[in-house]
């Protein structure tokens, strides 16, 4: 880690600590009941008293999220390539996909339980379904945004269709694909939790729902806290991979042109 990112982490940590202290002081000053809003100290106590149990559920949620996300990337990119390569598919599949995207996926989550039971599969399916649209739409945009003169160059070089796709269009679309992936990873996490809400015996979604049943507010907050950390780590991981995969991308160049 370089100095700048260390500084960033330090600032974030300080902000969170100050926020926690204000929360702690506020709850105690105003005498808020723990069942409404527990103080951070109680949440942390709850979390660390049963840490392995929490981590086990977090692990399940993480696996479902990553599985749904991976499926979304593979299938989403494949769909985007088909859509861009075929006028017919653009008019059919793409229209359907854009239409489907306006259906709230949460509303069809119970269907997956009917179809796939109560194991990990329906959660994976929902995570996939929520995440895939961002991938398809951003990748299609990227594949279509190749500058005209670069396409002309490819034609002048008598490039085959697959040359044009894999050497020109696809690399050109990578920044868009990563933009889509940054959105999709957060959506996949939402999808995993929705799946666990609908029916589950595992995962942080299940922890939240069961704790709600017993008015165990500290436990709800502990699970939410873990979810926040999970979401941030997943997002940071995508940013890391992007840096590694796109060293050329203008948004991260660290030295400017000279004469």
């Amino acid at each position: 880690m370089n100095r700048q990112s260390l500084q960033g982490v330090a600032i974030t940590t300080m902000t969170l600590i100050v926020f926690g202290l204000i929360w702690e002081a506020g709850v105690s000053y105003f005498g808020v009941k723990p069942i409404v809003l527990p103080p951070p100290s109680a949440i942390l106590r709850e979390l660390f008293s049963e840490l392995p149990w929490y981590l086990g559920h977090a692990w399940f949620t993480l696996i479902v999220t990553l599985g749904g996300f991976a499926l979304a990337v593979v299938i989403g990119v494949a769909l985007a390539v088909l859509i861009v390569e075929s006028k017919l598919l653009e008019k059919t599949i793409y229209t359907v996909i854009v239409g489907l995207n306006s259906v709230p996926k949460v509303a069809i989550a119970p269907l997956f339980v009917i179809w796939m039971g109560t194991g990990a599969e329906p959660k994976l399916a929902i995570a996939f379904l929520i995440a895939v649209f961002a991938i398809v739409i951003d990748t299609v945009l990227g594949l279509k945004s190749v500058p005209a003169d670069i396409l002309d160059l490819g034609r002048a070089l008598r490039g085959s269709r697959s040359m044009m796709l894999w050497r020109i269009r696809f690399p050109c679309a990578l920044p868009s694909l990563f933009a889509g992936m940054k959105v999709a990873i957060s959506l996949a996490l939402v999808g995993a939790i929705v799946g666990e809400f609908v029916s589950s015996q595992r995962g942080l979604g299940y922890v939240i729902l069961s704790a709600q049943g017993t008015f165990d507010t500290a436990r709800v907050f502990a699970a939410v806290f873990l979810l926040a950390i999970l979401g941030m780590l997943l997002f940071a991981a995508i940013v890391r991979i992007e840096r590694w995969a796109l060293p050329w991308h203008a948004s991260q160049k660290d030295y400017s042109p000279s004469a």
């Binding site: 670069i150 160059l153 990578l174 796109l246 050329w248």
Partner: peptide, 15 residues
């Protein structure tokens, strides 16, 4: 065996 140069260089940024 055609060589072509455009007004904008048309370089591939990722290469």
């Amino acid at each position: 065996h055609l060589g072509i140069v455009f007004q904008r260089d048309a370089l591939l940024e990722w290469r």
